[in-house]
């Protein structure tokens, strides 16, 4: 049986891991290679790196980070942020990443999902959706959660699957950094509408909330950043807790 995945997420800016609250107030959280190796030792199932630095220089440093991490840490690596065309995907995959996550670029140019899936396979293509509640539904946001695309997040996920995305990384803008728990309704609604794995992200503050994301939110994986970076929990703590609750983990 397949295990639920615990995925540490490292936001990288100019080669350093940083963490913000509600996409703001960025603080330094450490060296990406050291953190990656530590999370692997703790039993992380995958790692996700998001390049939040907008500059060309930050992109180049990211390639180097991926090269170094993939030479020392042998678990799957997903890289997102600033990927605009197939050549960007190729460079990142060639540097040692296993998957690329697309958010803004996919909304601006949906055919990028199809092209990426055609060339590298669906398993390489993660559709990252930054969702924000609008009344009874959710909208997909772009540009690091700053701009409303006007597109329904659930509908976008369905379309993304059709275009060739192999996985959805679902981040709740409303809950991100609040530690008040995942947006369970968003997670469940979206998870029931697609037939590809969904990774829940944004809002985790307690172990119980992670369990809820899996049980009630129907998440196939949970993505975690600040809770891990600031040492509130280790991956092992999370896995021990979930295991005791009967969740299948590695």
């Amino acid at each position: 049986m397949l295990a639920i995945r615990i995925i540490p997420c490292l936001d990288v800016d100019n080669g350093r891991v940083v963490k913000g609250v509600k996409f703001r107030e960025i603080r330094d959280a450490g060296d990406p290679v050291e953190l990656a190796a530590m999370y692997n030792r703790q039993g992380a199932d995958e790692l996700t790196f998001l390049d939040i630095g907008a500059s060309y220089q930050s992109r180049e440093i990211m390639i180097d980070v991926v090269e170094r991490v993939s030479s020392e840490v042998f678990i799957p690596l997903t890289v997102g942020g600033g990927i605009r065309e197939v050549s960007d995907m190729r460079r990142i995959l060639n540097a040692g990443a296993d998957k690329v996550a697309l958010c803004t670029a996919a909304i601006k140019n949906p055919s990028l999902l199809a092209e990426g899936a055609e060339i590298f396979g669906s398993q390489c293509i993660v559709l990252s959706i930054d969702a924000k509640r609008h009344g009874d539904s959710w909208r997909a946001y772009i540009n690091g959660g700053r701009i409303d695309s006007g597109i329904d997040a659930i509908e976008w996920a369905r379309q993304g699957e059709k275009l060739g995305a192999g996985e959805i990384l679902l981040n709740s803008i409303d809950m991100d950094g609040t530690k008040k728990g995942y947006d369970l309704e968003l997670n469940r609604t979206l998870s029931e509408q697609v037939n590809i794995p969904v990774i829940a992200s944004g809002g985790a503050g307690t172990l119980e909330q992670m369990y809820d994301a899996i049980q009630m939110g129907k998440a196939d994986a949970v993505l975690l950043a600040s809770l891990l970076h600031y040492g509130e929990f280790t991956v092992k703590d999370i896995k021990n807790y979930l295991k005791a609750k009967g969740v299948r983990i590695r």
């Binding site: 397949l2 199932d45 398993q123 037939n195």
Partner: peptide
């Protein structure tokens, strides 16, 4: 059956 592709750790 299940979500396809299978992505993750299996025994």
């Amino acid at each position: 059956r299940g979500k396809v592709p299978q992505i993750g750790w299996n025994q």
